[in-house]
C-alpha cells in the first residue's frame, strides 16, 4: 500500500476518492441548510437530527479525516511539483489551452480552507463548545441553531465572505468534479463531455445554493 501511495497516480487516487467524498458531503450539507428557508423549527429539528443521528455521528470523524487527507496530499503534490521545473518559462500563455480554475486549484483550495476555518469557528465550534439557547419542541430541548446562523447572516460582510466562499467552492468543483473521475480512470471520449456537464451543473447548484441562503436573510433584514 505504501508503494502505491508513493506513486503520483496513487496520490491522485487518494485525492480523488476524498474529493468525491467531500463532494457528496456538500450535497447533504446544502440540503440541511436549505431548511433554513423553511423556518426556525424545521431547521432546528434538522440540526438536532444531524447532531444526534448515529450514522452522521459516525461519519463526522471520517469527514475530518477526508478533509485532512485531501489537503495534505494536495499540498504535498503541489509543493513537490514546484521543483519539477527549476527554470521557469519567461512567458507562459495558458489562456487558450486550459481553464483558470484548473490552473489554480491549490489557490482556490487555500481560499476555501481559510473560509472553512472561519465557518467552523462561527458555527461548528459555537454549537459544540459555546453558549447556546435551547427551545422546547414537543418533549425535547433543541439547540437554537437557527438564531445562531441567521444572526450572522444579517451582517453584510459576513454575507459577502459566505458568497465569496461559495464562489471559490464552485470554481474548485468545476474542475475537481470531472478531474476526480478522470484520476480514477472513469473517463472516456463519450463520458468526458457528460462528466463536464454534470460537474458544471453541480458546481452551479452548490454555488447558488450556499450563496442564496445568506443573501436571503440579509435582504429580509434590510427590507424589514
Amino acid at each position: 500500500m505504501s508503494s502505491f501511495i508513493n506513486t503520483s497516480i496513487g496520490k491522485k487516487f487518494l485525492i480523488s476518492i476524498t474529493g468525491l467524498f467531500l463532494i457528496s458531503f456538500l450535497a447533504v450539507h446544502l440540503t440541511g441548510n436549505l431548511f433554513l428557508l423553511a423556518g426556525q423549527e424545521s431547521f432546528n429539528l434538522v440540526a438536532h437530527f444531524m447532531a444526534t443521528d448515529r450514522v452522521i455521528s459516525f461519519m463526522e470523524p471520517l469527514l475530518a479525516v477526508g478533509f485532512l487527507l485531501h489537503i495534505v496530499f494536495t499540498a504535498y503534490l503541489t509543493i513537490t511539483n514546484q521543483f519539477k521545473r527549476p527554470q521557469k518559462f519567461a512567458k507562459v500563455d495558458h489562456r487558450q489551452t486550459s481553464s483558470w480554475p484548473s490552473q489554480n486549484m491549490f489557490v482556490l483550495g487555500g481560499l476555501i480552507f481559510i473560509f472553512l476555518v472561519l465557518h467552523l469557528s462561527n458555527f461548528w465550534y459555537q454549537m459544540q463548545f459555546g453558549e447556546m439557547d435551547y427551545i422546547l419542541y414537543g418533549d425535547i430541548w433543541v439547540q437554537d441553531a437557527y438564531s445562531l446562523v441567521t444572526g450572522k447572516f444579517i451582517i453584510w460582510w459576513y454575507v459577502l465572505i459566505y458568497v465569496a466562499g461559495a464562489v471559490f467552492l464552485g470554481l474548485h468543483l468545476l474542475h475537481g468534479f470531472k478531474s476526480a473521475f478522470f484520476s480514477l480512470g472513469l473517463y472516456n471520449k463519450v463520458w468526458g463531455g457528460r462528466l463536464m456537464l454534470i460537474g458544471a451543473i453541480y458546481s452551479i447548484i452548490i454555488t447558488v445554493g450556499f450563496s442564496l441562503i445568506p443573501v436571503y436573510f440579509l435582504i429580509g433584514h434590510l427590507t424589514g
Binding site: 491522485k12 513537490t80 489551452t97 481553464s99 478522470f182 484520476s183 468526458g192
Partner: peptide
C-alpha cells in the same frame, strides 16, 4: 511531475492525443 488534468497537454499536442488515454493509463 504529477497530472492535474488541466488539459493543457492535449491542447498543445501536435498530434491532438486525447486526455482519454491518460484516463486509460490511470
Amino acid at each position: 511531475g504529477s497530472c492535474s488534468n488541466t488539459g493543457a497537454c492535449e491542447a498543445e499536442c501536435p498530434k491532438g492525443i486525447s486526455l482519454a488515454h491518460i484516463a486509460r493509463l490511470n
